[in-house]
């Protein structure tokens, strides 16, 4: 599809204009690599379901999944509304949802070399994390990473729609981010959570944004169901929310003079 191809090509060129920034941004996502040190150390002492090597592998995958699912459409959308640039986007025969989506995908491609570099460096520093993934689970993990990206994008896009009412939707986003940090498995794998908390967490959309794909990629034994259904349901909820809020929001936006 030509539209998608050109969108990607142009946004890739745009992202490459900011190479240095992009590199710093990749680095700023290195939190899991720091946590990895902490948890491997803890695993050596305490009684955890994981060996230090498994922890290392899990957090590496958390790092990679998070790199693949970074979304910032909230900020972008807020700026569009506050600065009135949304009007330009509305004049085009393309829903801004797809325009921003293309920019995100292009950024992913621009980011890739840095991520590969960092991963190689990581393997040099933590030889115990090296492993040969099982192809089936690994492919499934990749597919789930893609789904995780789409879920996170849709979720943030739906939240971004609140800009029509508050002009500061990002503060709502901050709350979500806090929940995300704790419940997604970024700080600790869900296996080390207390039983009740783990069950509750698995009902929220967050573990599917990081934990599930990362665990699959790391070669852990995880059950795909009913998690996948929960994930897809949340996807449906946020898609519906986006469409609804978009329609109501546009009426409001135009009411305020676009």
């Amino acid at each position: 599809m030509r539209k998608a191809r050109v969108l990607l090509a142009v946004y890739l060129a745009y992202m490459l204009e900011y190479r240095a920034e992009l590199f710093l941004w990749v680095l700023s996502g290195a939190l899991p690599l720091i946590l990895l040190g902490v948890w491997s150390e803890a695993a050596r002492g305490g009684s955890f379901p994981f060996t230090p090597g498994e922890f290392a592998r899990y957090f590496l995958m958390v790092f990679l999944v998070r790199q693949a699912t970074v979304v910032w459409v909230e900020w972008e959308f807020e700026r569009d509304v506050v600065e009135g640039r949304l009007s330009f986007r509305l004049l085009r025969p393309l829903d801004p949802f797809f325009d921003h989506l293309a920019a995100h995908v292009a950024e992913r491609l621009a980011r890739l070399p840095f991520v590969v570099l960092l991963t190689l460096l990581f393997f040099a520093l933590f030889p115990e994390a090296r492993f040969l993934p099982e192809p089936g689970a690994f492919l499934l993990g990749l597919l789930l990473t893609l789904l995780a990206f789409l879920l996170r994008y849709t979720m943030q896009y739906a939240i971004a729609m609140l800009t029509f009412w508050t002009e500061r939707a990002t503060s709502v986003g901050e709350v979500f981010f806090l929940l995300y940090l704790f419940l997604s498995g970024t700080i600790a794998p869900l296996e080390v959570f207390p039983e009740t908390l783990r069950h509750l967490a698995l009902l929220t959309p967050f573990p599917y944004l990081v934990y599930l794909p990362a665990a699959l990629l790391a070669g852990q034994k995880v059950s795909l169901f009913p998690g996948l259904w929960v994930m897809l349901s949340w996807g449906g909820v946020f898609l519906g929310l986006w469409r609804l809020l978009w329609r109501l929001g546009l009426r409001r936006y135009s009411g305020h003079g676009a």
């Binding site: 090509a9 060129a13 745009y14 640039r85 009007s87 025969p93």
Partner: peptide, 26 residues
């Protein structure tokens, strides 16, 4: 008083983008 072109890229890139969005053949 407003602009739609992408600031940091050559205008040609914005034009290509518009052509794709408006489905203007190559």
């Amino acid at each position: 008083n407003k602009q739609q072109l992408i600031w940091d890229l050559p205008a040609m890139d914005s034009l290509r983008l518009n052509a794709a969005i408006y489905e203007v053949p190559e």
